[in-house]
Design a protein around this nucleic acid. Sequence first.
DNA 1: CGTAGACCCTGCGCGC
DNA 2: TGCGCGCAGGGTCTAC
Length: 276
Amino acid sequence: MPELPEVEVVRRTLAPGLVGERVAAVEVRAPALREPLDAGALRRDLEGRLVEGLRRRGKYLLVDLEGGRTLALHLGMTGQLTLTAAGPERPPEPHEHVVFRLASGRSLRFRDPRRFGLAFTAATAALEADPHFAHLGVEPLGSGFRGRHLAAAASRRRGPVKPFLMDATVVVGVGNIYASEALFAAAIHPRRSVARISAARWERLAGAVRDTLRRAIEEGGTSLSDFVDGEGRAGAYQVSLAVYDREGRPCPRCGAPIRRFVQAGRSTYHCPRCQR
DNA sequence: CGTAGACCCTGCGCGC
DNA sequence: TGCGCGCAGGGTCTAC
C-alpha cells in the first residue's frame, strides 16, 4: 500500500498534531513486526521527549526527537499511523501494535495487520549510516533525480525496466503501483530491457515518475483497500490510476484493453498498444 | 556481480 | 453457508 506518496501524505497530515508535542508514554503491544520491536529502546528514546520534526526518506517516516534520537517508522504493506481525536482515548483496535501516548492526551497509533512494518530508533546524526538507510538511492522528488541518473544506474545493470524502477538502491519510494503508472505515462513497456532505453526516454521516464508521485500526493495517496492518512481519511488517487488494477478495462489513451502479467513475483499492468 | 524465487504475516474476495 | 485458493501497496535472504 504505502509507497512514497502515501508516506508523504501521512507525514503532512501528522505534522500539525505531532510536531511540538511531548511523548508521555510508549506502549508496545506486539513483540514483533518485520524485526523485533525493542520496547526498552523506544521508551528510553521517546518518553518525556519533545517531537522536533517529521521527515521522510524513501518510504520511511522519520520522527526527530529532543535528545538527538530519531524514531524511524516503515508502513510495510498494511501499516497505518493515525492520531486519535482529542477527548477520551478509545481502546486500542486489533493490530495496533504500538501506542505513542502524547502529553496532550491524544495518541499516535501504529496499526499493521500483516506486520511487514518497522519501528526503531537511531542517532539522528548517524541515520545515513544505519543499515536500513545506507544502501538507499536518490529521492525522486529531489533535484538529483534526472534521466541521467537512471541511465547511469542502468549502465551497470541488465533486465527489464520495471523491477529496475522499483529497486530502492536506484531510486527510492517507487513501488508496484507507481512503477506501472509511471511506465504508462512515459509510454515505455515494462519488459523493455534497461540496456535498450535511449537518453531521451530515460529523461521522459524520470519526468513521469516525478509527475505521477506529485499528483498522487496532491490527491491524498492511493486507497485501494486500506490506506488512510494521519487523520484516518482515505486518499483519492485510485480513481486516477491509468493501468494499475485495471486488467481488461480500456486504456485511457487508446482504448485497448489493459493487460496484466507477473514480473519478479509482482503484478505488472500495461497498455500493449501505447507502451513500447 | 546481478537476478529470480521463496518467505515473512493477515485478511479479503472469489469460485466451488 | 463454508472452505480453500490466490492475491495484496513492503523488503530481505538464499540459490543460481
